[in-house]
Amino acid sequence: MIVVAGEALIDLVPRGTGALAALTPALGGGPYNTAVALGRLGSPAAFCSRVSYDAFGEALLDRLRETGVDVSSVQRGSEPTTLAVASVGADGSASYSFYVEGTADRLFTAPAALPPGTRAVSFGTCSLVLEPGASAYEELMRTASGQGVFTALDPNIRAGLIPDADAYRARFKSWLPSVSLLKLSAEDAEWLGGTPQEWLAAGPAAVVVTQGGDGLTAFTRDGGVYAVPGERVEVVDTIGAGDTVNAALLHGLAVRDALSAPALAALGADGWAGLLGFAARAAAITCSRAGAEPPYAHELEG
């Protein structure tokens, strides 16, 4: 079982051009998209979050159930669902503004235990910024790591939600001893101001950096550097692409029985090439269609 911990929200995606283009609601949130992608790839997955009782919350849970994701660890609340208004650039890249005050996911509390059979827990995005929930997710990360559970982190920086950049950067560094696999975009790496080598020295067994259409690069503690090019595709938008990479990496590691630091170290060049290539293909499919629509396993066969 791979558990994904973090927010579920509604993306309001423009259908057309101009400031007053019609907005279409779409199910989203980085961790939520990762859980859906894991389910579509066929990995046993569970979602750990706090979701509203409103209509958006019900729709979010319905999709998880339809995808085969366990929702027994989802907390519920009467507060509204978080909204993210997406802006899509000419190249398909997406940026967001958020409506987060008083929303349900901010009030997440750390569970007493993880679901039985948990092999890995994935964290990231807004849920590690917005208090008081951020401290609860941080507690869960440290607890899981202390129990020997594989932990993955994608900070997926949303700078508009971070009131004190320096404080967040310091907090990010404090998480690294509890992280097995760090995945982040080149833009996030630049914003954080560190290097893969510095982050590896602080704890993770591997760091994967995504460079959009230019591909992915993995860095390991023994000095290994493994890169694959991006898959060429006609980009509709990039919504959910990084989340798909998270899921593809975790799924690929689970298939290889490599959800541990020693197993990551033993992957070698061929193992990393296969894993990163799989993630690149999965992300390309997501980019080829509107919104966060990660691929199913059969779309990646061969």
Results as ranks from 00 to 15, higher is better:
47 F>G: 03
36 V>L: 02
78 S>M: 04
53 Y>A: 10
7 E>W: 14
43 S>Q: 01
56 F>D: 03
83 L>Q: 05
10 I>W: 03
64 L>V: 09
61 L>E: 07
36 V>H: 01
1 M>K: 03
82 T>Q: 06
37 A>M: 14
34 T>I: 14
82 T>S: 02
38 L>R: 11
19 A>G: 15
67 T>D: 13
39 G>P: 09
24 T>Y: 14
62 D>W: 08
3 V>C: 10
20 L>R: 08
45 A>Y: 02
79 E>P: 08
23 L>V: 02
23 L>W: 04
29 G>C: 08
41 L>D: 15
49 S>T: 06
57 G>W: 10
86 A>V: 12
66 E>Q: 04
70 D>T: 01
16 G>Q: 00
72 S>T: 00
26 A>N: 07
30 G>L: 06
67 T>I: 06
74 V>M: 06
87 S>W: 04
32 Y>T: 11
6 G>A: 11
58 E>Y: 09
31 P>G: 04
83 L>P: 10
36 V>I: 13
24 T>D: 15
32 Y>E: 11
23 L>G: 02
55 A>P: 02
72 S>V: 01
37 A>Q: 04
84 A>C: 09
29 G>Y: 07
1 M>C: 08
23 L>D: 03
38 L>C: 15
61 L>R: 03
68 G>E: 01
11 D>S: 06
83 L>C: 06
81 T>Q: 00
46 A>K: 14
25 P>M: 11
88 V>C: 05
17 T>G: 15
67 T>G: 12
29 G>P: 11
9 L>W: 04
64 L>D: 04
74 V>S: 01
12 L>H: 12
21 A>W: 11
5 A>R: 11
41 L>A: 15
10 I>S: 05
83 L>T: 08
51 V>T: 07
2 I>V: 14
74 V>I: 00
9 L>H: 06
33 N>W: 07
6 G>K: 12
57 G>A: 11
73 S>T: 08
78 S>I: 07
27 L>M: 10
86 A>I: 09
34 T>W: 01
51 V>G: 04
86 A>E: 05
4 V>C: 13
20 L>A: 14
61 L>T: 00
74 V>R: 05
73 S>W: 06
1 M>Y: 09
83 L>D: 10
20 L>S: 13
30 G>V: 10
16 G>Y: 00
54 D>E: 07
74 V>T: 00
72 S>A: 08
65 R>N: 08
72 S>F: 03
7 E>Q: 10
51 V>D: 01
85 V>L: 13
23 L>R: 13
67 T>W: 03
39 G>D: 01
84 A>G: 09
5 A>Q: 10
42 G>C: 13
88 V>E: 01
34 T>K: 02
12 L>R: 13
30 G>A: 15
3 V>A: 07
